[in-house]
Amino acid sequence: MSISSAEHRGAEHGHRQSILFGVLIFGVLAAFLVSLLVGPSKVGWTELIALLADPDVAPAAKQILIEIRTPRALLGFLVGGSLGLAGAALQGYLRNPLAEPGLIGVSASASLGAVLTLHTGLAGLFALALPLGGIAGAILAVFVMQALAGAAGGTLRLILAGIALSSFASALTSLALNLAPDPFAAMEMMFWMMGSLSDRSFEHLELAGPFILCGWALLSVLGRSLDALTLGEDTARTLGIDLNWVRSTLVLGVALSIGAATAVAGSISFVGLVVPHLLRRFVGSRPSTLLYASALGGSCLTLIADISVRLIAPGPELKLGVLTAMVGAPFFLLLIMQTRGDWQ
């Protein structure tokens, strides 16, 4: 009897999960499509259909759909997926629901790395320097974060260390931009601190895409290790998990995906916090399943947010990072109130 019930449970489990992933995949596809159809110009459905029917349709519509909106939507997918995936991976590894690339300073450090390559002229010498700079900044941040507030560090340490690291990286970014002989330095600073996807091109996609995908590949094999870590480090190790391998894979995976994403989009906070939290209950809290669900959820949410910034404000487009912070920060406060009891 118990055997059949366990099997039944397994099937039911799988069923619920299929529904969740079905919904998420549909959400990503739908958001991607809408992302192609929405923008300041009137180009929309009719133009898209006309373009699919005849590729030599009006050049303006073609350029807008293919060269402006498509790379933007693809980047939204990649950047959002990275944020969700890295958020879920960091939370699983640190066993802390408040860990998130933006909050723990990884995004700010990646911005710093990218800005430094710009102002030392490295990015001018070879284009790959930009994402590599972002990745280097992110690696450094994850390392510092682990040293300051590793898995045993507790929530308070994690958040305080994150604030310190973020502020420091932002200050250095400001310094770098202040020293640069650029009259738009102040605006540039805002771009890097409040990410956005507007007017990104296939060049950005080519620069960041391969690194992001490598990061995804690394993070996605962490699933079972993160599951095992649910039982604590000791038990995870006796289950055959090599924690050193987990740590280096995590650091590299987060750095590659978030570093490269930030180098082309600027830092976008809270997506990595909100998405895993919302999805956790639907995957029975399993860190491995949460990983994949959060990647899709992050893509979906980021695409939706990026569509919203185009629709909300008339005139200058709202920064994507502003929107995610406006939605995410209150959410973060709520989460702090909920976890208040566990602080050490």
Binding site: A228, L229, T230, G232, D234, T238, L239, G240, G284
Partner: peptide, 29 residues
């Protein structure tokens, strides 16, 4: 080693609210 030796720590913790079945399934990793 992991297949042959099981360790049950004192006050074993579970950091996420997994279902009992999922938690026990971790033993099969």
């Amino acid at each position: 080693l992991a297949r042959n030796l099981a360790y049950l720590p004192q006050n074993g913790q579970a950091h996420w609210s997994l279902s009992v079945a999922d938690l026990v399934l971790l033993g099969r990793l």
